Simulated scan of single mutants.
Amino acid sequence: MADNSIVKGVLLKANSILGKEEERALARRAIEGDETAEEQLINSHLGFVMKVAKGYKRSGVPMSDLIQEGIVGLIKAVRRFNPDFDARLSTYAKWWIRASIQDHIVKSWSLVRLSTTSAQKSLFLNLRRKTFELIEGADALSENIVTQLAERFETTAVDVRNLARRVTLRDQSLDAPISDEHGETWLDQLKSDAETPEECIAQESEKTILSELMERALQKLPAREQFIIKNRYFVEAKQTFASIGRELNLSKDRVRQLENRALQTLKELTEPGLIDSQIIIK
């Protein structure tokens, strides 16, 4: 229904074909800024836009979109047309109309950029027409066709095959189910158990805060308790109560008692800072 309304709207606006001299006179007025003359030139070629757009009706893009893009190309042509050259506006505008339509077809086919140069866009459209006729899609293209296209557009057969597969397979939503039997989506397959960059940054920030809190708290402990804590928790090779006792001339049970007291003191000293920083120690 939308396509029909667009077509009807274009037909209602379309004016009769202009004569050569009338067209030139309007073009000169349009160059001087006469918007009415410009509009008349555009309206007189709307039927021509429809004719060009119909050539791409098998592109998979709605006809209304093709016509609208064709009109965009026509407007560009009208504003660049030189009436002093011995050429009709339709001849000049045809390239602009086709280029605008082709560019839209390529861009609308995928969110990922498919083609950049004019040759690549032409190859895309050629492949689109050929694969449209093949039920099996890109893999059904014969080696002969692939070779001919590769030679014509100065590329490799591998590139032709790869682009042909892109042409036949439209973008798929990550929220789409993998199959009718399972509710799992493609997005579920992309999930990772690894920490996100945001989580890594948050953890590093917490480590920095904890390190600063602990350093300040340790400095408030008596020297013996600082020594015990550092050698029990801040060295690669954790010392035993007995080995620390020998260095401090204490029994291992006394070292254990001092460690417990020191840990309780550290907890009391760091707890307010942890609460302020909203850090939870599990």
Rank of each mutant, 00 (worst) to 15 (best):
K107C: 01
A262S: 05
I135G: 00
P222G: 10
N126L: 05
Q40M: 15
V255F: 00
G137E: 10
L263D: 05
E206I: 01
F124T: 06
E204M: 13
R129Q: 14
V158C: 07
S179N: 15
W109K: 14
I201G: 00
R166G: 14
V158F: 11
F132C: 05
I42S: 03
T91V: 11
V146Y: 08
R232T: 06
E69R: 07
L46H: 00
E225H: 05
E215S: 09
G183L: 08
L123T: 14
D34V: 02
L221T: 05
R261Q: 13
E181P: 02
F153I: 08
N43S: 07
A202F: 09
G273K: 02
E236D: 14
I135T: 13
L266H: 06
A138M: 12
V146M: 12
V49N: 02
E212V: 02
S122H: 10
K107P: 00
I201A: 14
K107V: 03
L11Y: 11
T131P: 07
Q120L: 05
S243V: 11
V106C: 08
L89W: 06
A202H: 10
E268H: 07
Y56C: 01
D253S: 15
K13S: 14
I135L: 14
D253A: 13
S205F: 00
S211W: 05
R58S: 13
L174M: 13
R161Q: 13
A53E: 04
S192Y: 02
R256E: 09
I178L: 15
I275Q: 12
T117R: 07
K94M: 10
P272F: 03
G55K: 07
T116W: 13
S59E: 07
H45T: 02
I209L: 08
S44K: 03
S110Q: 08
L210Y: 03
R88Q: 14
K94H: 10
K282H: 09
K76N: 15
I42V: 15
T185N: 09
A150S: 14
K76V: 03
L125H: 06
L248N: 06
R88K: 15
N126T: 11
I71K: 11
D193I: 10
T208S: 12
Q226G: 04
A93E: 06
